[in-house]
Simulated assay, not measured.
Amino acid sequence: MDKHVDQLVNWLKQTVEETNTNGLVVGLSGGIDSSVVAYLIKQALPNHSLGVIMPCSSSSEDAEDAQLVVNGSGINQVTVNLTEQHQLLFDNIKQQVQNKNEWNEEKERLADANLRARLRMSTLYTIATNYNYLVVGTDNAAEWYTGYFTKFGDGGVDLVPLLHYTKSEVRELGKALGVPEKIINKAPSAGLWHGQTDEQEMGVSYDSIDAYLKGDKIDEQDADIIEKMHQRTAHKRALPVAPPNFHHFTQE
């Protein structure tokens, strides 16, 4: 994994140089993926890397774990608490739609969770603009294939260094980088609501997804869940859809 770390660090340096930007910023959730990215960007650009902790009606333990990463990696850090802004905005949106008697209560939790992810994305890009930094994403191969990310939320980034690494490989990268053991062994969670875990929400384990991506034989039901997620979320991995070019009209 040391070789992979060196290759990723060099790629990050090269990308900043090629884009004529000054550095790199990542949102720190207290999970393994963002922790690995934080250690990588700190190695790549020690004086021009930034981790942003963004509590948003989320567990205090997540912020504490994110601080562990800051302390361990030595990365420059800023905290922006989005709880109040999120609540005000979500309540306002909900009220306006309720006034039309069109609020879908079954979709409320998902809409709420996606708004949090998109507020965090907007925060990161506001900070990135200030420093002329690139926003670094944290999605791994399993999340990308299954579409387990919010479109224009945590999926709204400039770089995705972990895209070709399975969840288990990201953990191995974490060990090589010196990420705290507590974070490496933590149950993966997007922290979108109390008690939420990735695997519980997806209905399949990361170990199964990792094995599937490597071409190993897995439980048929798990394989079906993974493929359905992949197909259902194809739009997240594609550019916005456009119609055929009707601009050039022919004279009749």
Score class of each variant (00 low, 15 high):
131 Y>S: 10
106 E>A: 15
193 W>I: 10
160 V>R: 14
172 E>I: 08
111 A>V: 15
184 I>N: 08
173 L>C: 08
154 D>P: 07
181 E>H: 03
114 N>I: 10
126 T>W: 13
98 Q>C: 12
108 E>H: 15
125 Y>R: 09
182 K>I: 13
127 I>L: 11
132 N>D: 13
126 T>N: 14
144 W>F: 14
150 T>R: 10
104 N>K: 15
151 K>A: 05
155 G>N: 02
141 A>E: 09
129 T>K: 14
194 H>W: 11
173 L>R: 05
184 I>R: 03
109 R>P: 14
133 Y>M: 09
193 W>Q: 01
179 V>K: 07
171 R>G: 00
167 K>R: 03
130 N>I: 09
163 L>A: 13
153 G>Q: 07
100 K>N: 03
108 E>L: 13
99 N>E: 08
131 Y>R: 11
187 A>I: 05
186 K>L: 03
141 A>L: 13
110 L>T: 14
109 R>C: 14
186 K>F: 00
115 L>A: 04
112 D>V: 12
101 N>T: 08
139 D>E: 02
187 A>D: 09
106 E>C: 12
180 P>V: 15
108 E>M: 14
121 M>Q: 12
140 N>H: 12
111 A>Q: 14
101 N>Q: 07
168 S>F: 08
183 I>E: 01
102 E>K: 15
197 T>H: 02
130 N>R: 11
135 V>A: 13
178 G>T: 05
166 T>G: 11
123 T>E: 04
186 K>E: 00
162 L>C: 03
111 A>D: 06
168 S>D: 09
102 E>C: 14
103 W>I: 12
134 L>P: 04
136 V>F: 02
171 R>Q: 10
167 K>F: 04
153 G>H: 06
108 E>Y: 11
103 W>N: 08
187 A>T: 13
181 E>Y: 07
174 G>H: 02
107 K>A: 15
137 G>F: 02
179 V>W: 02
98 Q>D: 01
175 K>Y: 03
135 V>K: 10
135 V>D: 08
137 G>P: 04
140 N>E: 06
126 T>S: 14
196 Q>R: 02
177 L>Q: 01
176 A>Q: 04
151 K>Q: 07
150 T>P: 08
144 W>P: 01
117 A>Q: 09
179 V>P: 00
117 A>V: 04
174 G>A: 07
116 R>S: 05
100 K>G: 00
180 P>H: 04
130 N>T: 15
130 N>K: 15
147 G>D: 01
169 E>Q: 13
109 R>T: 09
143 E>Y: 09
104 N>E: 12
152 F>Q: 14
194 H>A: 14
163 L>C: 12
181 E>Q: 06
120 R>Q: 06
118 R>E: 06
